[in-house]
Design a protein around this nucleic acid. Structure first.
Lengths: 199, 199, 199, 199
DNA sequence: AATGAATGAGCCTTCATTCAT
DNA sequence: GATGAATGAAGGCTCATTCAT
C-alpha cells in the first residue's frame, strides 16, 4: 500500500470534507477525486470514518505539539501568550481545510474516536489555561478564572476557520498582532493609573 | 395546520439536530419525537431542510434584533460593548440547542438558504464592527482594524456553544463579565503610563 | 403494515432460501418475487436475517409444539414413538421448504439468534430423548443411551429434507411406517428367543 | 506449484468452511490462514469454488471407496451392515470438518460440480441400498423398500456431523454399536415368537 | 512464486419524499 | 389531518478475481 496514494486520498478527503462536509461527501466523491473505483479505496482505508479520524487526529495533535513547545520556552508571559496566539493562527491559516475538518466535522465521529479527539482537545485547552495561570503566577497577568479566559482566547482563535480567507488581504501575522493585543490589553484605552500590578 | 404542532415539530428538530446533527437526524426521528408518522410531518413542513432553515433564521434574526437595540442605546462605548457581550452570551446560554444548530448545522443548508443565512450573519458581524468603530470614533477604544477586532470578540462569544453547560457552575453573567473584561482591558496588567488615550 | 404482505414476503423468502440458499438469495431477489422495490421491503422486515430467524423459529417451534402434544398422550410407548416419527415426517413432507431452511440455513444466523434456535433445537432433542427414556422405564424399550438413540432416530427423520420429493411416489405415511418399523424392530430378522424383555 | 502448499490451502479451507461456512469464508480468510496474499492463492487454486469442489469430492469419494470394500467382503449381512455403519461413523468422526463441508456446504456448488457430487452421493446411497438388498435376498433382513431403509440408516449416520464432538465422551465405536443395534434390531423389545424369518 | 493494486459488480440498508386512502 | 405503503436513489462496504511487476 503506497503511502503516497494514501496521502493523496487523505488530501482529497480533507478537501471534500471541508467543501461539502463529512456527511455530504460520499466515498464515491473521494474515489472520483483520486481516480479510483469506490471499492479500490478500501485497499487504503478501512472506513470513511477512519479517514475523518486520521485527519482530525493529525490536526489536533499538531496543535498540541506546537503549544507544548511554546510552553517550554523561557520568555516572559506576554510574549508567550503572543507566540501561542501567533502559532495557532498561523497553523489555522496555513491549514484552513484540515482545521475546518477538525473543528466542524469531528463532531460526526462515533465512539471510540469521538472520545479520543475530545481528550486531545481538552488537553489543548489545558495547555492554554496553563499559559494564563503561569502568567498570573508570575504577576504579569491579572488574576481570575484562567480556564474561562483561555476559552475566550481559544474561541476567538478557533473561529478563524469560519472567516479566514487564504487569498484575502490579511496575513496570519497581522491577525495575530491584533488578536494578541486584544487579549493582552483589550480594545479600550485604559483609565490612567488603572489596573496596575500590585507591587 | 395548527401553529402549535409546527412549533412542537420545530422544537423536536432543534433538540435532535443539536444532539445528533442535521444529517444524522432522520425525518423518522423527528416524527417519532412528536408522535406522528413520517408522512404526516409533511402536512406541517415542506422539507427537512426547511426546518433547519427556519431554526437557523430565527436564531440569527434574534441575535441581530437584540444587537440593533443595544446599538441604539445611549450609553458610553465600554458599556455598550459590555452589553453586547452580555446579551450575546445570555442568549447563547439560554438557547444552547438552537444556537448550536445555527452555528454548527446551518452549514448544511443549500442555496438559496445558505446565502440568506450568510447575509444575516454578515449583518451581525457588521453590527459588532459598528460598535467597535463608534467606540474608536468616540476616543474610548484604540484605533485599529475594527472588523478584525469584532471577529475576535464574536468568535470568542460564539465559541460558547462548544463548551457552555446549562447546568454548569458558571452563569451567563459571570462569563460575560470575564469576557467583557478581557475584550476591553485584556488579561495582562498594563505597563504604567501605557496605552493612554491621546488628548 | 399489512400482515398479508409480510406473509407473502416470508413465503417468498422461504422459497428462495430453499432454492438458492440464504447467502445466495439477495434482498433484491425477494423484492422481485413480491413485486416491490428493494427498499420497500424494509417496511415489513427489519433485516434479511430477521426473515431467516422468523422462518427458522416458526419451524422449530412447530416441531416442538407437536411433539409436546404427543408426549402428553396416553398410549403405549411403541405407539408413541410411531406417532412422533409419523408426525415429524408428515411435517417435514408438508413443509419441505421451511424445514430445509431450518435445517440447512439456520446455521447462517448470527447471535443472538443462533443461540435461540439452538436452544429450541436442543429442546426438541430432549423431547425425543424423553420418549425413549419413558419407553425404557415402562419396559417396552431396551435399556441404553437414550440420547444417542434419539439422535439416531431424529437424524434419520431430519435427513428427509435432503431426499424427500413432494411429488414423488412415497407418501409421508408410507415412509413413517418403514422408518418406525426400523427404529422399533430393526431391519433384521431376530434370532428366535432373542431379545425378550426380562420378566 | 508445490503440492504441499496446495494441501495446506485445502486444509485451511476445510477448517474455515466448516467454522464459518463457505459463503462467509472469504478468499482473504484463507490467504491469511496460510500466510499468503490473496492474489498469491491463485497460483494454487483456480477459484474458491474449485476448493470447495475438491474437498467435497475427496470426502464423498472416500466414503464410496470404503463402502465398496466392505461390500466385497464375505461376511454375513448383519455383520456387513454393522461394518458399514461403523466405518461411516468412524470416518465422520475422524474427519468432522471435511464431512461437515461435504454435507453442509456442497450445496453451494454450481454446475457442473453440483451434479458430479450429486452422482457420487447417489452412488453412495446405492451401495447402502445394495447392502440391505443382499441381506434381504439372503434371508437375513426383512423384506421391504430397501432404498428407504438405506435412507433411514444413512440419514442417521450422516446426522453425526451435526452433533458429534471430537473431544466428547462418546467414541465412534460406542456410537456405532448403538446405531447398528438400532438399525438391526430396533429400540423395542420384541414380542416373543414375533418376527421370525419364514422357513 | 509472490505481490498488491485495481476492478466492478453486487451486497444490505437508509432515507426524504409522495400520494392514495 | 393523518396514515402507511411505496418509491428510487444513494449510501458505505465486501469480495472473487485479474494482472503487471
Amino acid at each position: 500500500m503506497s503511502a503516497n496514494k494514501y496521502e493523496e486520498i487523505a488530501q482529497a478527503a480533507i478537501r471534500l470534507f471541508q467543501q461539502k462536509g463529512y456527511h455530504a461527501t460520499s466515498v464515491q466523491d473521494i474515489a472520483d477525486e483520486v481516480g479510483l473505483q469506490k471499492g479500490s479505496l478500501y485497499h487504503y482505508i478501512s472506513s470513511k470514518e477512519e479517514l475523518l479520524m486520521k485527519i482530525a487526529h493529525q490536526s489536533i495533535s499538531g496543535f498540541n505539539r506546537r503549544l507544548e513547545k511554546i510552553i517550554d520556552m523561557e520568555v516572559n508571559h506576554r510574549e508567550k501568550l503572543f507566540m501561542a496566539v501567533q502559532t495557532h493562527i498561523t497553523v489555522v491559516a496555513a491549514n484552513m481545510q484540515m482545521t475546518t475538518v477538525l473543528l466542524r466535522e469531528a463532531f460526526s465521529l462515533a465512539e471510540p474516536h469521538a472520545t479520543i479527539i475530545q481528550e486531545l482537545t481538552d488537553r489543548y485547552l489545558d495547555l492554554w489555561t496553563r499559559i494564563i495561570d503561569e502568567g498570573i503566577a508570575a504577576g504579569e497577568f491579572k488574576p481570575g478564572n484562567s480556564r474561562l479566559k483561555a476559552l475566550a482566547i481559544l474561541g476567538a482563535c478557533n473561529w478563524l476557520y469560519r472567516w479566514y480567507e487564504t487569498d484575502g488581504p490579511l496575513s496570519a501575522d497581522e491577525i495575530s498582532k491584533v488578536f494578541a493585543d486584544i487579549f493582552l490589553d483589550g480594545v479600550a484605552y485604559h483609565k490612567p493609573g488603572g489596573s496596575i500590578p500590585p507591587s
